[in-house]
Design a protein around this nucleic acid. Structure first.
Lengths: 240, 240
DNA sequence: AAGTGGTCTAGACCACGGC
DNA sequence: CCGTGGTCTAGACCACTTC
């Protein structure tokens, strides 16, 4: 009788959760063997295929490595490649305190191109939030994000300086973010951007424009960011 | 009797290949329904789980979309997010002819830092191949790649101008490339790079340094590339 | 030789979409 | 309502690694 009585969560996800927790809770570390498929099946009282399904998912996430004939092992502590993380989360993963300064937080109109990228009518109202990110006391990025104004009007009064935008969206607005498509190129600092980032005009900058989608494949945030190239590299993993 | 008589290829991969071919051969287009799991199982004479496994793989690759209760459909023409492709393959996927000019193809020694990135001793001999990539007649990238010299010595005499490095490796050297880790930042053109790319000094450039690994998790190629930012953007998909 | 992951079968029930 | 994908079972054989 599948997935009854048990939180409604499918069996394979419960197995994943159990393993994930033991790894995240440092009870297992890089290289440790994970219970074999047959063991997991026995322990959780499921069939072999279900246990396999659980491990296959964890392997795709990079949490676990499977070596045919040998076993399944906790994967090396992964640099979170290609993972959508907020600035706050990125800092946390490096053990650094987040620090940013809100420059602008208001409603704008007639931002035609940006409205289009969010799948909205050209004249829609948009929330605009502009922030400078710091490491230590040096500014290293200028991020401007836009959200649909009707849905997220309350955001302009949110404590953006203290709380992560991602967590505000996920907790207060019940929006689950799913993925982002980014376009990356290089540019040089000029005018206001150079000034805000404490750079001389002509310094190289990484420009990242991203559209962040919710689990419903709906665009939720458009972000354009400028990153000081001496202080920020982008890491990507590409698969064949 | 699994995977006998049939090319040695597992049944689920044969199903995938059949579907892939029909999509790539334009016999099916974006939005068209793919045979249902039960249909595929019947057609290919396999069980439902095997047909499901095939579709699950195609869905992960982004080739196909599955909508519960509705069916499985050919996914929108996908931009190849986070996919490791050679320059030749990238051009092909956009319907453009590849064009590049080999500047250097020789053996070098004492490239300590690069040897280290390839997991080799500091004094190892390395193959160095430097090429300018073009779109039309405009240069848009300078790519320099390094490979272990002992293993790939024959490469310096390979027809690099005519043949893709990836395919030479995969066919002539029996090396299967698996993934690449990239570090991306911004810089400005200067000296030789500016000259080769036909840019003025100070123009913004995207710099990509990548280590390409074989299926055996062994570093095989180190590439450092400079890309004219007006002619090249990087697209990334990040997942939550 | 024992254990592991990889593949596969022939069934089953569920929740959901579209008609 | 019927067909779909999503989950699951209780077995099986194979190729491989480890000892």
């Amino acid at each position: 009788m599948p997935q009854s009585r048990n939180n409604g969560l499918p069996a394979y996800q419960q197995i994943q959760r159990a393993i994930r927790q033991r790894i995240e809770g440092k009870q297992m570390k890089h290289g440790d063997p994970v219970s074999s498929e047959r063991e997991l099946a026995r322990i959780h009282g499921v069939s072999l295929m279900t246990a396999r399904h659980a491990l296959a998912g964890l392997e795709r996430e990079g949490i676990v490595e499977r070596r045919p004939g040998a076993g399944t092992f906790v994967a090396p502590p992964r640099i979170h490649f290609n993972k959508l993380m907020s600035y706050t989360e990125q800092m946390a993963s490096r053990g650094l305190p987040p620090s940013s300064k809100v420059i602008v937080a208001k409603v704008v109109e007639r931002e035609q191109e940006i409205a289009a990228r969010l799948g909205l009518a050209a004249t829609s109202r948009l929330i605009k939030i502009e922030r400078v990110r710091h490491t230590g006391d040096e500014p290293f990025a200028l991020e401007t994000c836009y959200l649909p104004g009707d849905e997220f009007a309350a955001l302009v009064d949110a404590p953006l300086a203290r709380t992560s935008l991602f967590s505000t969206l996920e907790h207060d607005f019940d929006v689950q973010l799913a993925y982002a498509d980014e376009e990356v190129d290089a540019t040089v600092a000029e005018g206001r951007v150079a000034q805000l980032l404490n750079l001389h005009v002509g310094a190289p900058l990484l420009r990242i424009r991203q559209v962040i989608y919710s689990t419903k494949t709906k665009p939720v945030i458009y972000v354009i960011g400028f990153y000081r190239s001496e202080r920020h590299s982008l890491f990507i993993r590409r698969l064949r």
